[in-house]
């Protein structure tokens, strides 16, 4: 028999094409439940703190009553601590989770405010503390560039998606490290936040997998103290399309929200972003979520300033 390399390679491939993935046993650990404190403070909403218990991914954490037995105190700009109200009844500020509770303080923070928190669990005596500030208002302008048509193969046919593209110009203050995030608030129908994406170098932390995440955050490393313009777009929703006779129009109706972040907030987003990137890839070094909670617990308390563009309203005639 004449032996040829091709036959041998085919033999190799046939042998190798067995499954290389299978279920394995992993010795799990019991994880103690601890108190988790989260708050996202902005210049346009009252102070809300959410308290919940942590649990184990393996489902072996004992039940905890942290959320029910917690007491939260807040101090604004060093004034006396005030007890925050637990929101038991109304839907506003009510976390959609049976093990969590929201605590409300009816005060809308302003730029420069420093807020300090003390969270106590009355049953266990655990005390957590945290503080943050509200950053300054960011200065920026938005102008329309055009609408991109993205041809996307959905597995069956090619479809067109329309992505309005804008140019954002930020006026970055000098001698400060500044941190930002940008979002598009769609006002067509129900208000929603559209995912923003950009290929500008300032979004160097973005990867293909995380292109369409909210909180497209960035820092001023490339334009410190200067005015800087970058383009971004977003995938317009289905209800932003309208057929008029033989024509199809895509509608832009909304506002761009530029968020100024504290450095801690930026670090939190960075770590959250990395954790998300590495999720399911345990081969990678996992990321611990950044925390500024002091004490035996978890969570994050961060401040941000929300600034908005004027309402953008455009109709684009698209090819059918």
């Amino acid at each position: 028999m004449k032996f040829t390399p091709n036959i041998f390679i085919l033999l190799i491939i046939a042998i190798i094409f067995n499954s290389c993935e299978e279920i394995m046993n992993l010795k799990t650990k019991d994880i103690e439940s601890k108190m988790v404190v989260y708050s996202y403070l902005t210049n346009e909403d009252s102070v809300v703190v959410v308290v919940s218990p942590s649990s184990s991914i393996f489902g072996n954490s004992p039940a905890s009553k942290y959320a029910l037995d917690a007491q939260v105190m807040v101090s604004v700009n060093g004034t006396e601590y005030q007890k925050m109200t637990r929101n038991d009844h109304h839907n506003t500020y009510k976390p959609i989770d049976s093990l969590a509770n929201a605590f409300v303080y009816e005060y809308v923070p302003q730029s420069g405010d420093m807020l300090s928190f003390i969270v106590e669990d009355l049953s266990s005596g655990t005390t957590l503390t945290a503080e943050t500030t509200i950053p300054a208002k960011p200065q920026f302008e938005i102008e329309l560039v055009g609408v991109d048509t993205i041809k996307y193969y959905n597995g069956l046919i090619y479809k067109d998606y329309y992505q309005p593209r804008f140019r954002c110009t930020i006026h970055d203050p000098a001698r400060d490290k500044n941190y930002y995030a940008i979002e598009y608030i769609n006002h067509s129908g129900r208000k929603s936040i559209n995912n923003v994406y950009s290929e500008d170098p300032i979004f160097q932390n973005m990867t293909e997998e995380t292109y369409f995440l909210s909180n497209a955050f960035f820092n001023d490393m490339l334009f410190d103290g200067q005015s800087y313009s970058f383009e971004f777009s977003f995938e317009n929703s289905e209800n932003a399309r309208k057929e008029v006779g033989k024509d199809i129009y895509t509608i832009v109706y909304g506002r761009v929200r530029l968020i100024q972040l504290t450095e801690e907030m930026y670090l939190y987003f960075s770590s959250s972003h990395e954790a998300l990137n590495h999720r399911g890839d345990l081969f990678s070094q996992p990321q611990q979520l950044y925390t500024n909670i002091q004490g035996d617990g978890y969570g994050f308390v961060g401040g941000a300033y929300h600034a908005y563009s004027d309402t953008l309203e455009y109709y684009f005639k698209c090819q059918k």
Partner: peptide, 28 residues
Amino acid sequence: DLVIKTPYQLHQEMKPYYTSPNGIDVIW
């Protein structure tokens, strides 16, 4: 192995069902 509950404002993967930038009907 530790699961922490995070509000959507601080969560990077999920989008809220709806929101209002003016502080009305915010559900965490």
